[in-house]
């Protein structure tokens, strides 16, 4: 049992995509900021969801202060090289959850959905209407090559989101305006 627990703990901190209990792809991480209290961590996570990305890339969906839980939705474009330039190929949408407990926090990205893009009559790349394919169905509906590519890029994006969240939780880039308020200096006093 102990060995299984260790193995599970190890798997839960692996920096890669895994499957959750519902067989959905998940990128799950646990981190801590020992010198920062719970409220501050929560506020920084909230600040991250509100400001770290433009709203079409990540936005706050729900905040639950009593449960110290925040959820957001986001998406990123997958571009493929064609001729000499990159073209939008698909958008991968996801849900992000951040939870705080003591001086620790955990976050996970899941519910990945692939929205293929196509060129319209005006040479603009637009989403294919009505096509939203859960990543779990990718191999069957999108083919192995494309799905492998999406998974690679998805993992890279998850790491970027995670790295940015960590910087918000740890550094001044993640401080809310209240925290970054400058201290007043009274020049009359030495």
């Amino acid at each position: 049992m102990f060995a299984f627990g260790v193995a599970l703990a190890h798997a839960q901190t692996t920096d890669s995509l895994s499957f959750d209990e519902n067989d959905k792809y998940i990128y799950y991480q646990v981190a801590s900021e020992p010198s920062v209290n719970t409220d501050t961590l929560y506020n920084r996570a909230l600040h991250f969801l509100k400001t770290a990305y433009p709203s079409d890339q990540l936005k706050l969906n729900k905040e639950n202060k009593s449960k110290l839980s925040l959820t957001g939705t986001g998406g990123f474009m997958v571009r493929k090289k064609a001729l000499v330039s990159l073209q939008p190929n698909a958008k991968i949408e996801f849900d992000l959850t951040i939870e705080v407990k003591g001086d620790k926090y955990r976050y996970w990205l899941t519910n990945f959905v692939v929205v293929p893009y196509q060129r319209d009559r005006y040479a603009n790349y637009v989403p294919v209407s009505g096509k939203k394919i859960p990543l779990e169905h990718g191999y069957r509906k999108l083919g192995q090559k494309d799905t492998d590519d999406y998974i690679d890029k998805l993992l890279m994006n998850c790491r970027w989101v995670g790295a940015k969240l960590k910087s918000y939780m740890a550094k001044t880039s993640g401080l809310s305006p209240a925290e970054t308020k400058l201290k007043k200096i009274i020049t009359k006093e030495w």
Partner: peptide, 10 residues
């Protein structure tokens, strides 16, 4: 290609 990657060619 050299100066601006936002040009899309299709």
């Amino acid at each position: 290609k050299a100066q601006d990657s936002t040009l899309t060619i299709s």
